[in-house]
């Protein structure tokens, strides 16, 4: 029978062993040097299921230190069930400080949203990515998409966007709208809504992306050009909330959640980013992201 001592082993700081951390760190540096390029990495199994944020976790755990303050969000919410689970896990293995306050965090792990509040050069945002390959919808084999990236052969992608326009009158990509990074690589921004996409462009913070199941990581360094794919005559546009208002704040220049009421007919809208909503309610000043789309909305407002 096994000795008891075997069952009492404690885990390393930040769970992952140092060998793997080093590997992830080396690859993160390469990812920064080649913005938008997907670096393959070992992606060891975690006690969290594949598809539930393992890639984000690998990055967060390779980055985090004793002085970090962690914010963990899922669909814009700090209190979403999976965010709670992941936050607990990181907290348990690092004893780090955690927060809901966007401004206070040094490290933010997110699924499917960028905060409404603008991030600073002291902050790193880590995205959980389900499908890192923006070309997967047009080419199913990995060795082929890799070649397409190598040769900047993006004709198939442009064709698909064009076909969508011909068929439906618009590029129908919703969340995860493909972007061109630094004029070289087409990149999937992870399934963030189009509302968030312009905030990747020329940001102050570092954006890092981890796709655990597909074993890829990539990066957008600060002050890097990130442009949504668009045509001369068919422009990228963000989601439209101009006819609705947040039920709690009356504000509508933010990404909204749509909630059906119990009667199944009436709908109410609320600001999606839970910390931003809290701050609006409590009338705390927030430095919101600005970009040409949001600025236009604010101008129309006046």
């Amino acid at each position: 029978m096994i000795e008891n001592i075997k069952f009492n082993s404690s885990y390393n700081f930040a769970f992952i062993d140092e060998t793997t951390k080093k590997e992830i760190r080396r690859k993160l540096l390469k990812a920064i040097c080649i913005p938008g390029y997907q670096v393959p990495y070992s992606s060891p199994e975690m006690p969290i299921a594949r598809g539930w944020g393992t890639g984000g976790l690998h990055l967060t755990l390779a980055l985090i230190g004793k002085t970090d303050t962690l914010k963990m969000i899922d669909q814009g919410s700090d209190a979403s069930v999976n965010a709670c689970n992941l936050r607990d896990f990181v907290q348990l293995t690092t004893n780090c400080k955690t927060t809901y306050d966007t401004n206070e965090a040094t490290l933010i792990q997110t699924r499917h949203r960028i905060t409404e509040e603008k991030l600073t050069d002291k902050q790193i945002m880590v995205f959980q990515v389900p499908q890192p390959e923006p070309l997967r919808r047009v080419e199913r084999y990995e060795y082929k998409t890799r070649q397409m990236h190598a040769e900047s052969d993006y004709a198939k992608m442009w064709l698909t966007l064009y076909e969508a326009f011909v068929k439906w009158g618009d590029v129908m990509h919703g969340a995860g709208y493909p972007v061109m990074v630094n004029g070289r690589y087409i990149m999937s921004p992870s399934p963030i809504p189009r509302w968030d996409v312009p905030n990747l462009n020329m940001a102050d913070c570092i954006y890092l992306f981890g796709a655990g199941r597909e074993k890829r990581l990539y990066a957008v360094p600060p002050h890097t050009r990130v442009e949504p794919l668009e045509f001369e005559d068919v422009k990228f546009h963000i989601e439209n909330f101009k006819d609705v208002k947040c039920e709690s704040t009356g504000y509508n220049i933010a990404y909204m959640d749509e909630m059906y009421q119990d009667d199944g007919i009436t709908k109410k809208f609320y600001i999606n980013d839970s910390n931003f909503l809290d701050k609006m309610i409590e009338k705390i000043a927030v430095n919101q992201h600005s970009n040409k789309y949001i600025n236009q909305l604010k101008k129309n407002e006046q």
């Binding site: 594949r50 598809g51 393992t54 990509h173 439209n240």
Partner: peptide, 29 residues
């Protein structure tokens, strides 16, 4: 199998942000 199971079950996670974006597109269309 372990990866396939994880990804299959991740469909149970909330996707309302992504869904809202698609919904927005569809309504405009």
């Amino acid at each position: 199998g372990v990866e396939a199971m994880g990804f299959t079950n991740h469909l149970k996670l909330p996707h309302y942000v992504t869904f809202q974006s698609g919904l927005n597109n569809l309504r405009e269309s």
